[in-house]
Simulated scan of single mutants.
Amino acid sequence: MTLVICSFFTFLAFGSDDEKKDISKMNTEAFTISKNFVEEQLKAPGSADFPTLDLTSDYIGDNTFKVKSYVDAQNSFGAKLRTHYVATLKFNGGDWADKSNWTLIDLKTTEQ
Rank of each mutant, 00 (worst) to 15 (best):
M1Y: 10
M1F: 12
T2K: 15
L3W: 07
L3M: 10
I5A: 14
C6L: 14
C6R: 11
S7E: 09
S7M: 05
S7N: 14
F8N: 08
F9A: 06
T10F: 10
T10E: 08
F11C: 08
L12M: 13
F14I: 01
G15Q: 05
G15F: 02
G15V: 08
S16F: 09
D18L: 10
E19R: 09
E19Y: 12
E19T: 10
K21D: 13
D22L: 11
I23M: 09
K25L: 14
K25W: 14
M26I: 01
E29R: 15
E29H: 12
F31N: 14
F31E: 11
T32I: 11
K35M: 15
N36K: 11
F37K: 07
V38T: 03
V38S: 02
E39M: 07
E40P: 06
Q41R: 13
Q41H: 00
Q41T: 08
K43M: 00
A44M: 01
A44L: 01
A44V: 03
G46Q: 06
A48S: 04
D49C: 06
D49T: 12
F50H: 06
T52Q: 07
T52K: 03
L53W: 03
L53K: 15
D54K: 14
L55P: 03
L55N: 12
T56Y: 03
T56W: 02
T56P: 01
S57P: 12
S57R: 10
D58M: 05
D58Q: 07
D58H: 02
Y59T: 01
Y59S: 05
I60Q: 00
G61S: 03
D62Q: 09
D62S: 14
T64K: 01
T64Y: 04
F65S: 01
K66R: 15
K66E: 14
K66D: 10
K68V: 14
Y70M: 00
V71F: 03
V71S: 04
V71T: 08
V71P: 00
V71D: 08
D72R: 13
D72L: 13
D72Q: 12
A73S: 06
Q74A: 11
Q74L: 06
Q74K: 15
N75H: 05
F77P: 07
F77S: 05
A79V: 04
A79G: 09
A79E: 11
K80V: 15
L81Q: 08
L81F: 02
R82F: 02
R82D: 04
T83M: 11
T83W: 05
T83A: 05
H84K: 14
H84Q: 13
Y85W: 06
Y85A: 00
V86D: 09
V86L: 03
T88R: 00
T88E: 10
K90V: 04
K90F: 03
F91H: 09
F91M: 12
F91P: 08
N92W: 04
G93A: 09
D95N: 12
D95G: 00
W96D: 11
D98A: 07
D98V: 13
S100I: 06
N101C: 10
N101A: 06
N101H: 11
T103Y: 03
L104Q: 13
L104G: 05
L104M: 11
D106V: 07
D106M: 03
D106E: 11
L107C: 05
L107M: 02
L107I: 01
K108L: 06
K108T: 15
T110G: 09
T110K: 15
T110L: 12
